[in-house]
Write a protein that binds this DNA or RNA. Structure first.
Length: 510
RNA sequence: GGACGGGUAGCUCAGUCGGUAGAGCAUCGGACUUUUAAUCCGGUGGCCGUGGGUUCGAGUCCCACCCCGUUCACCA
């Protein structure tokens, strides 16, 4: 059983072209030799005395002064992946890396013995090894683990990426993220930041007495956002379901049921285009707070985002794509129509007539197509003329009612809703409003959406009877907020593409 | 879906006017007992994204298609 299972008839070999197969054959031959020496190349465990960063830190702490006679040394057993190797006759230097740090390992023929030194020739870049010895500095000052013993912990059969340029092919980086992480360890930092960001936000919400809940991903009726859904099928019900486009309606049903502060951090799915700001599945945080309105929530949102971003970037300013962003409070707040007047130079508020709005948008060079309604025109002007100016954190508020079928009308202005969106570094990172809790109004809004749908708008929302029924049971006044966590992760990690902050972004299947 | 750019060795990339497909790194062999992008000598490694076409001859020119990126459209 030991030695006759590694000689090369695996299907993987057939998929490889010449050079790659040859590199793999070399490693398989080494694997074979290792087994012949009765050394299991895939170990079960290894006891580390320290992680590498810790060993380095302790060693640096006990280093003697330059005048001191005896050199400092730390006995240690460390483990990691071999990331570089410099063979020099009867001595060899290797760099090994664990999750946090790297360290140089010195293998000396005299120190580890002839057989072990010879066997070390079957080690490759990419292998995991465990090494016991003393941490000391070399003559050139490099902190180094001088090996007394080493053992192979796991053999790598695939060649490593180029040591200087690394792996830069974006398709390979996204399709095989593990290769990206191995070749470009700074990628780990991006995802650590993303994880920290979500963790800090969750802790903040829990500290504010929000209850974290989970609502369905499979929806009989897609709701809570204007978006095209994915369709899936349940076999025993013999019924189609939709992957959720938003958790909104379920979360509001929980307010009806009696919870007063709920949030959910989870995936949403939208069957739409893919680009640097959109992945088919993405992560949002949605919260709902009873007895609150949008202005109160705006204050809270600012406090939360400020806290989260500061915790992750370590200060009140950071750079996103070469522009300096300051999150110092208070953040700028501007009504959507004021922003349009200011940045686009046109007034879209004084008319609610679609044709007039189209004419004014066209006057500043916007293209307006026949199927665009009033709300859509406003949205387009905002995206084109206002959004590019919102480098510093800014809340836009009071959106036209056409764009917001789930938001409450603005007090004293039926044409607007009490809605706001936070923008940071010109990215839309969220959406919030005073939640519509009038079931009659809500039904009318859904009916307006149904009319849009009949007119061919595939993204218009469906009438959700159970949701309207819930409102009829009675929902307290409330404000709700959604934050796009992938977008926020882009901002705090200075990533130009959403794919850089999603571990396994969706690509066309090979 | 449109426009533009890209796809050549395991990785990073050259490839001129259409004339035998290259480099560095990795890998293999040799030298080397303190290197760190180690160095020196020698070798292996190619469906040039796929399929057609033009041509005596195509990595190179033409057509179609596939995949990736950017951007526009749509959206968060």
């Amino acid at each position: 059983m030991k030695s006759d299972n590694a000689n090369g008839h695996e299907p993987a070999e057939e998929e490889m072209r010449g050079g790659e197969a040859e590199l793999r054959r070399h490693r398989l031959a080494k694997l074979e030799r290792i087994r012949e020496r009765l050394d299991e190349p895939y170990k079960y465990a290894f006891h580390r005395s320290h992680v590498i960063a810790e060993a380095r830190r302790i060693f640096e702490g006990q280093e003697p002064q330059a005048t001191d006679e005896s050199p400092a040394a730390l006995p240690a057993q460390l483990a990691g992946r071999i990331v570089a190797r410099r063979i020099q006759g009867k001595s060899t230097f290797m760099d090994i890396r664990d999750e946090q740090a790297r360290i140089q390992v010195f293998l000396g023929w005299k120190q580890i013995g002839d057989d072990a030194y010879e066997a070390a020739k079957d080690l490759d870049i990419g292998d995991f090894i465990g090494v016991s010895g003393m941490v000391k500095r070399t003559r050139r000052g490099e902190i180094t683990l001088f090996a007394e013993r080493y053992e192979l912990l796991a053999k790598s059969l695939r060649p490593a990426a180029e040591k200087y340029h690394g792996l830069s092919n974006v398709e390979t980086r996204y399709r095989h993220r593990y290769l990206d992480m191995v070749a470009n360890p700074e990628v780990l930092d991006v995802f650590r930041k993303r994880v920290l960001m979500i963790q800090v936000m969750r802790e903040w919400l829990i500290a504010q007495n929000y209850l974290e809940v989970e609502t369905p991903m499979l929806h009989p009726i897609p709701g809570g956002a204007t978006a095209r859904p994915f369709i899936t099928h349940h076999n025993t019900f013999d019924h189609d379901f939709y992957l959720r486009v938003a958790p909104e309606l379920y979360l509001k049903k929980l307010l009806v049921g009696g919870f007063e502060r709920v949030f959910e951090i989870n995936r949403c799915f939208r069957n739409e285009g893919v680009d640097t700001k959109h992945n088919p599945e993405f992560t949002t945080m949605e919260l709902y707070e009873a007895y609150q309105d949008y202005m109160g929530l705006m204050e809270e949102t600012e406090e939360m985002l400020h806290h989260v971003i500061k915790s992750v970037v370590g200060g009140e300013t950071f750079v996103y794509q070469e522009r300096v962003v300051s999150i110092a409070r208070p953040w700028k707040r501007i009504a959507l129509f004021d922003a349009i007047r200011q940045y686009a130079g046109i007034d879209l508020e004084s008319t609610r007539n679609r044709e007039e709005a189209a004419k004014r948008a066209e006057s500043i060079g916007m293209e307006v197509t026949p199927e665009m309604g009033y709300g859509k025109i406003v949205d387009e002007v905002m995206s084109a003329c206002v959004q590019p100016h919102l480098v510093q954190p800014t809340f836009l508020y009071d959106y036209p009612i056409e764009l917001s079928p789930l938001a409450k009308k603005k007090r004293g202005n039926d044409a607007l809703t009490e809605r706001f969106q936070p923008f940071i570094a010109c990215l839309e990172v969220g959406n919030a409003f005073s939640e519509l809790n009038d079931p009659i109004d809500q039904r009318e809004r859904f009916e307006a959406q149904a009319a849009l749908r009949d007119a061919g708008d595939e993204e218009a929302q469906f009438l959700d009877e159970d949701f309207v029924m819930a409102l009829e049971v009675g929902m307290p006044p409330a404000a709700g907020l959604g934050i796009g966590l992938d977008r926020l992760a882009m901002i705090v990690t200075d990533s130009p593409s959403i794919r850089d902050v999603i571990l396994f972004p969706q690509l066309r299947p090979e």
